[in-house]
């Protein structure tokens, strides 16, 4: 009886040692992959920073207003943001690769899903960049046009344009990442619809006389107004 127990224990111990002997090199390989990944990510981040500095990416982003938009929400300038994102994506990819070296069968599917997901991160980043650029550009264009036309709510109009485009860009980025797809789309639709309805009601009630004047100006042939007799300052 004691012999049997001893034999079983020895067998288990041998199996455990065999498992450890089998697992340790894989663990070591994983650690090497992770450390190598960190090193590659570090070097890539350095290279990206340099290349973007040479391309004057941050100067362009500042001119186009993307930097200001990001700074407003507590994010670094776009060049630094890209470098950091690339660093983490590369390192995370190597970490996931390291996990796959361990050979844990249940993780394999998740790992392959992760690698399929990586391109979406970059597309989402691109969407956000272009979206923020467009938001700032069109907001500035709207502000200039409104100020030069002596429109009384110029700032409000510009803010509305900027927010609208930025929210649209964020929604598209989330959609690209597949995060809370339906919820984000519904939230966007409700918000957009509500704002439009609110504006329509506000204009309908508060600005009905303005609307009437605008329509009359467009549809009815009229006498020149007093200020039209004044010269253009050219």
């Amino acid at each position: 009886m004691a012999e049997m127990i001893f034999e079983r224990l020895t067998h288990t111990l041998e199996e455990f040692v065999a498992m450890v002997v089998d697992f340790l090199p894989r663990l070591l390989a994983m650690l090497i992959v992770v450390i190598l990944g960190w090193f590659i990510a570090f070097v890539t981040r350095f290279v990206i920073r340099r290349v973007l500095a040479l391309l004057k990416f941050d100067a362009f982003s500042e001119k186009s207003g993307v930097t200001q938009t990001l700074t407003r929400v507590g994010l670094p300038p776009p060049g630094e943001l890209v470098a950091r994102v690339v660093f983490w994506v590369i390192w995370a990819s190597f970490m996931v690769l390291g996990l796959s070296v361990l050979g844990i069968a249940t993780l394999q599917e998740e790992i392959s899903r992760f690698f399929q997901f990586v391109p979406h991160i970059f597309v989402a980043l691109l969407i956000l960049y272009v979206g923020f650029w467009a938001a700032h550009f069109f907001s500035r264009a709207a502000l200039l046009a409104a100020v030069n036309a002596n429109f009384p709510l110029a700032r409000l109009l510009a803010t509305f344009v900027q927010l609208g485009i930025a929210v649209l860009a964020v929604t598209m980025a989330f959609d690209q990442l597949g995060l809370a797809k339906t919820a984000v789309l519904i939230a966007f639709s409700i918000t957009f619809g509500a704002v439009m309805l609110g504006l329509a009601i506000a204009f309908g009630i508060g600005g009905r006389f303005v609307a009437r004047r605008v329509l009359e100006k467009q549809l009815i042939e009229r006498e020149p107004e007093k200020d039209e007799k004044e010269a253009s300052p050219l």
Binding site: L143, L144, V147, N150, A154, R155, D227, K229, E230, A231
Partner: peptide, 18 residues
């Protein structure tokens, strides 16, 4: 003829808003 008041008002609005 110019509307000087309007010109100056549009100048001030521009300086503030822009």
């Amino acid at each position: 003829r110019f509307n000087r008041k309007r010109l100056l008002q549009m100048f001030r609005t521009g300086v503030t808003e822009l």
